[in-house]
Design a protein around this nucleic acid. Structure first.
Lengths: 193, 193
DNA sequence: CCTACCGATCGGTAGG
DNA sequence: CCTACCGATCGGTAGG
């Protein structure tokens, strides 16, 4: 007995292929083979190759936005919030390794108007996070660096986690804590006495 | 009067197109149009599309390896070396914005045996850098985090610079210093008394 | 450096 | 969900 519907299975395989080979290098014939159908039969379940990319990208984006909302509600202070954001990214990477890579690398193959909507979604996420960083600087909790530089460095810093081949549940905390430590406390040992 | 040879011009345009549209989404017809030739005429100057990708990737890789050699020779201690590595990445991003993005994103479209050679080149670079980090930890200069985690986070952290649309020469220091500060000293203000 | 053209492969449709 | 097939586009070659 198959636990996921055929349609869900197609989306999962599409995400995996888009991640491994790239959107343009993945043919509908590749996808058909990996789900065990004739190429044309895919179109009984989905409308187009674009639709596959669109759903994968937007579902993943919604997940980040929802996560950011929770971070804003729950966290106590900017440092705590920033740690929660790192943990959010590592957790999503753990739970949805394939989709997140497509979200990161293949979104540029979206066609208008999806492309504009996607960029708007991403801009919204980044503005929330930048506001959070700026608040930390304003309150004197954070070193006075440009919020935009901190934002970009933080968002980049977590990205290697998405490429990890495997990750077990116990690694989530270890990795999230390690990255948070680096970004918040730095690599230099403090000799403060 | 044209300052670069036709062949060099083709490589430059190829890098720009591979960066903007991706390797697979860039056709030889696109490239021909952007250099002002008929598609078939490209083959008087180059052998294949693969050759374009190969040269762009390996030239860029050599540049990183050469830069790392200089870092190892010149730097005084692990913290200084790590700062130099950040500066190396930001400088290459400034001087060769297009090639570095192809190097980062499109290498996976290399075919064997180039692919294996490329991965070996990258592994060599990463091992040098990891050794440098491990030495800092061993000497008690760095916080005892896993060198592999620090390596990956550092290599990711600088990547947003490659995507920047423009960057003037004055920004190099500002950005390199900002990223180094974050990674070495952290974002938290130290209240050490 | 061009015209003319090749076989392969692409995303997708018609019709059942 | 299949067979049969479409027009478009691909990287590259022949020959001059």
């Amino acid at each position: 007995m198959i636990r996921t519907s055929r349609k869900e299975h197609i989306y999962q395989e599409a995400a995996r292929l888009f991640r491994d080979k790239g959107f343009r290098a993945t043919s509908m014939r590749d996808l058909a083979e990996s789900v065990g159908l004739e190429p044309s039969s895919l179109y009984s379940h989905i409308r187009s190759k674009q639709e596959l990319l669109r759903k994968i990208c937007f579902d993943c984006g919604q997940r980040f936005l929802a996560g950011m909302d929770r971070v804003s509600e729950i966290s106590e202070g900017p440092a705590d919030a920033l740690q929660a954001v790192v943990r959010l990214h590592v957790t999503i990477a753990f739970e949805d390794r394939t989709a997140i890579t497509v979200f990161n690398d293949e979104w540029r193959h979206l066609k208008e108007p999806d492309l504009a909507a996607f960029l708007d979604m991403r801009r919204q996420y980044e503005e929330s996070l930048e506001a959070l960083i700026a608040e930390g600087v304003r309150r004197g909790v954070f070193t006075p660096l440009e919020p935009k530089l901190v934002l970009n460095t933080l968002l980049s810093a977590v990205q290697w986690v998405y490429r990890k081949k495997q990750m077990d549940h116990g690694e989530i905390d270890r990795i999230a804590d390690g990255i948070s430590t680096l970004l918040l406390n730095g690599l230099m040992l403090q000799h403060a006495e």
